[in-house]
Amino acid sequence: MPIHEKTLIDPQLLVQSDKLVVDGIDVSGHWNTMILPRTMTEYDPDFYETIQAFPGGENVHRCWQCGSCTNSCTMYAINTDFNPRYWIYLINLGYKSELVKDKDIIWQCVSCNKCTNICPKDVRPEGVMKALAHWLEAEGHTPKSRSTLFDEEFTRQCIERGRIEDTEVMFNFFRQTGQNLGAMLKGGWLRLLIERMNNVHLLRQGKIGKFVARLPLVQGFKMGWAMVFKPRTRSWGRTGEVLREYVEEQKRAAHAGIGSPTH
């Protein structure tokens, strides 16, 4: 019998076995493909509170499923699997396993905020998408995003020294995100950036004097100095320590009772 509504079949529920005996009857061969039931048998009515604990998810419980968010969604126009309305429903009923299935597209929200503008119940779906992405990250379902890694490096330097060193932030960011610095220096945007900042076009035009005169030597020296000696801002003292404690405290308060590590 042909299978109708094939799209509803979850590949994870397809089971094939070389040898299959059902009720004592050998059905190996042609009948060896079985589809496990897709019936939902439980809710998790408090799960939405977990999402609410992430910034942006506060209003998720207000949703009444009108679908305005999905209809207005920039991403939905490109990929109809990107469906904020659906994920909000899953959050409110606590269908976690279904949410995890979409972990590879949920983060694609471009934060255009059309959904938030159109939502009649002020759910702020854009915030929910962010909260959901952060939950997936906190639960280890998705790797840390590049922006999270950047924020972490930026914050680390702020707290340690009361200041950041741009070059160090970038170097560490490239390293943590697995970007090949050598390759980027050889070609691509980083090379272009350095060339333009240093007026390499003057060199190419043969205007060597002008080029040398405009080389940012002092800045270059400062940059190198800071990279090596990592100076702290004046009278930084215990400020970093206090800040770190405060941030940890705030995180603990925001995610109280979640039982999952936060980023």
Binding site: L8, T39, M40, T41, E42, Y86, L90, E98
Partner: peptide, 12 residues
């Protein structure tokens, strides 16, 4: 059937 997730439900 939970119409919005297009799946059968059996809930106690």
């Amino acid at each position: 059937e939970d119409t919005l997730v297009k799946r059968p439900i059996v809930i106690p």
